[in-house]
Amino acid sequence: MLLIPCPWCGPRDESEFSYGGEAHIARPREPESLSDAEWADYQFMRTNPCGWHREQWLHAHGCRRWFNVERNTATYAIRAAYRLDEAPPHREDAL
């Protein structure tokens, strides 16, 4: 069971949250100018790392807000939670 630190409500039990997958996937600004391969990359391809992962969570049974979490997919440790308008606290190469 994960203990997830909601940036607004503090640490809460995983059962209050729902998962939103990989974070920081930006919707293309001009979808019509994308090739099929670029669209597939946006739509379907995922980094799926074994290790640190930036991901989206929704505090569904709490404040009902989305936020991002840095969680290790191998150990399940969580080292940061940050709001959507905040920059990720760790650099890319620390992932």
């Binding site: 994960l2 729902s18 998962y19 997958g21 990989e22 799926n48 074994c50 992962h53 991901e55 969680r71 997919t73 191998a74 150990t75 399940y76």
Partner: peptide, 8 residues
Amino acid sequence: IDAYNGYG
């Protein structure tokens, strides 16, 4: 499955 990504 568990909803989150995991290799554990």
